[in-house]
């Protein structure tokens, strides 16, 4: 009805509504662009989510038909499986330590780069380089560097009379070692912060300087508020990434353990040492693809989904806040 009243606008801005035939043609055009993606959303997102919920109520081992077991998988998950608790705590540990550590490192390096008068491009490339190293390669390199017997790190520490820890071979140090790895590869986050820092309007600094603000006051009253949307965004996406933290923990465990008996399978060493690096997704993987408790693995998946979805909602709110709606 209102369509008649509308001003003819550009084709892109308004769907043409005057005649049904045209409307359908427009719909078909959109569909021709979107069809593969919509199929992908259905097959690789909506379907497996529903299927995961269904399987989480079954006992299923690949070899026999799924059997409905009601809430048993959830009962086991919440009241009996102490490894699941341990794995969840490991993941929470990474969320609480790894995310802030990376943000702090990114902030410091990007501010350092901004303050440099010359050579900024050179240092930016150097600082960014570790983020490029493939995670598996970087993790293996770190396990070698931190090898307590032959690695360079403890060797260098010993020059200063420090008896280095066991790093990836110690349940107390394995997670901090992974944090060092994540902090080393901070380049991607650094580049994002750098761009945001350069977006801070210069007149604000000038005004602050005229007011006699010192470096800390300039940071706290000018830089930080301008940066905070990016910081919040980085924190939320960091949490989501850390909820899926898998590769580095898996590779560090299998390389550091080094004792995999032949035929044990890749996943037999996950968590080494003493499940200290067994993150929640790793526990899910081991349950499903090492022990073939597929039903239980799906119960773990459903819980992970609920948590990740909660964080994503926060993200979406944020997203609207600083782009003025999703569009």
């Amino acid at each position: 009805m209102t369509a008649l009243l509308e001003r003819p606008a550009s084709v892109a801005d308004k769907p043409p509504r005057r005649r049904p035939a045209r409307r359908w043609r427009h719909r078909l055009t959109v569909l021709s662009f979107m069809a593969p993606a919509l199929l992908g959303i259905g097959v690789f997102f909506l379907y497996p989510l529903l299927a995961a919920v269904y399987f989480s109520f079954t006992r299923f081992d690949l070899l026999t038909v799924p059997r409905w077991v009601g809430l048993r998988n959830y009962t086991y998950l919440f009241t009996q499986d102490s490894v699941a608790g341990q794995a969840a705590l490991n993941t929470v540990w990474f969320v609480l330590i790894l995310v802030p550590a990376r943000m702090l490192a990114a902030l410091l390096t990007s501010m350092l780069l901004v303050s440099l008068k010359r050579g900024g491009g050179f240092f930016r490339t150097i600082f960014y380089l570790p983020a490029l190293a493939p995670p598996v390669a970087a993790t293996i390199a770190f396990v070698f560097l931190f090898n307590p017997a032959t690695g360079p790190v403890n060797e260098v520490l010993s020059w200063f009379g420090v008896d280095g820890p066991l790093w990836f071979d110690s349940p107390d140090w394995s997670k901090p070692s992974l944090v060092l790895l994540g902090t080393w590869a901070v380049g991607d986050l650094m580049v994002i912060f750098l761009a945001a820092l350069l977006d801070v309007p210069k007149p604000l600094y000038e005004a602050a300087a005229i007011d006699g603000a010192n470096a800390w006051q300039r940071f706290w009253h000018v830089t930080f508020p301008s940066l905070s949307p990016v910081l919040v965004f980085a924190a939320v996406t960091g949490v989501i990434q850390t909820l899926q933290y898998f590769t580095q923990a898996a590779v560090a465990a299998s390389v550091a353990s080094g004792t995999a008996t032949t035929g044990g399978g890749i996943s037999s060493t996950f968590g080494y040492p003493e499940n200290s690096t067994l993150t929640y997704p790793l526990h899910l993987y081991v349950s499903g693809f090492r022990y073939y408790d597929m039903g239980y693995a799906n119960a773990l998946a459903v819980v992970l989904f609920v948590v990740a979805f909660g964080v994503t909602v926060v993200l979406l709110r944020r997203f609207r806040a600083f782009t003025g709606g999703a569009r």
Partner: peptide, 10 residues
């Protein structure tokens, strides 16, 4: 944003 592990088994 979905952790890939959620939909892995199905």
């Amino acid at each position: 944003m979905l952790p890939p592990q959620v939909v892995t088994v199905p």
